[in-house]
């Protein structure tokens, strides 16, 4: 009896201690060299570096990282059949730990059928409607955030590598244009805060470079995971601008451009931020 209990406990501990994702070398979050010429930043630094020790520690430990509640739910959904076709993600893609490796690092990505780039969330919904004949998930729903975080975590530690050439070029240019355009009653651009002033406090917050390698991110303020577009929206509202819609062409273009600004940083999803 005692033996069985101990064996059970050992198995349980072994399961818990198994890394749920690839290793993330936190040294690289301190900064990597841009690979592109004419990159606006000398050093590309993760938002992690600008947060306090407690927040960093929450992210570092998979047991403490609250985002893993969503990641675990995403893993569950991966092999749960849904929709009229009676299929799950796993039916088409098999084992996510191999088939989804590197996927997040390359998004937003050109979609030939749609004739435009798609974010990871849009791709998930495309699979749901086209292949599973299931309903779309809401942009900020727990299901979508969980799936996006589960898929993204398969790329943990891999360098961000979005394509910006060819058909992506006009989208990249559009995103860049939005990044540098001053908007809102406060008349500021993303660059005013995240390029010109990172490392400085703006009231209670230390400004980061506004990188998106950690999304979906668990934000203590939100008490849940949130998407890149939700974050963009928040920043635009703070400067009293009318935000673009989540999933809009404008935000997809901006996401592509901001992803490129973080090219070569390791994927950090799911990150924890204040």
């Amino acid at each position: 009896m005692k033996k069985i209990l101990t064996a059970g406990a050992v198995i349980l501990m072994a399961t818990l201690a198994m890394p749920a994702h690839a290793e993330l070398d936190t040294d690289k979050l301190k900064g990597v060299k841009p690979t592109a010429e004419n990159h606006p930043l000398e050093k590309i630094i993760s938002g992690y570096e600008f947060r306090n020790k407690e927040t960093q520690m929450l992210q570092d430990d998979d047991f403490d990282n609250p985002a893993y509640i969503w990641v675990d739910a995403g893993e569950e959904l991966w092999s749960t059949a849904d929709g009229a076709a009676g299929k799950s993600c796993a039916d088409c893609h098999g084992d996510a730990t191999t088939s989804m490796k590197g996927v997040k690092a390359s998004y937003p990505k050109w979609n030939e059928a749609k004739g435009k780039p798609m974010t990871l969330q849009q791709q998930v919904n495309d699979c749901r409607t086209e292949r599973m004949q299931a309903d779309e998930w809401g942009w900020e729903s727990d299901e979508m955030l969980g799936m996006a975080a589960y898929v993204a975590s398969q790329s943990r530690g891999m360098p961000v590598a979005v394509k910006t050439d060819g058909q992506m070029t006009p989208w990249f240019e559009k995103g860049k244009d939005i990044y540098y355009t001053r908007v809102g009653q406060l008349d500021m651009s993303c660059a005013n805060c995240h390029e010109d002033n990172y490392g400085k406090n703006i009231r209670a917050d230390m400004l980061s470079q506004g990188q998106i390698n950690g999304f979906p991110t668990y934000r203590l303020k939100w008490q849940k995971l949130g998407s890149v577009h939700r974050r963009f929206k928040g920043c635009m509202k703070n400067i009293r601008a009318k935000p673009f819609d989540v999933g809009s062409d404008e935000f997809v273009a901006l996401e592509l451009y901001v992803a490129w600004r973080g090219q070569n940083l390791p994927v950090e999803s799911p990150a924890v931020r204040q």
């Binding site: 355009t181 908007v183 809102g184 009653q185 500021m188 635009m236 509202k237 400067i239 601008a241 009318k242």
Partner: peptide
């Protein structure tokens, strides 16, 4: 004010 100023 800047472009896209919130209605409010």
């Amino acid at each position: 004010t800047g472009t896209r100023t919130a209605k409010k």
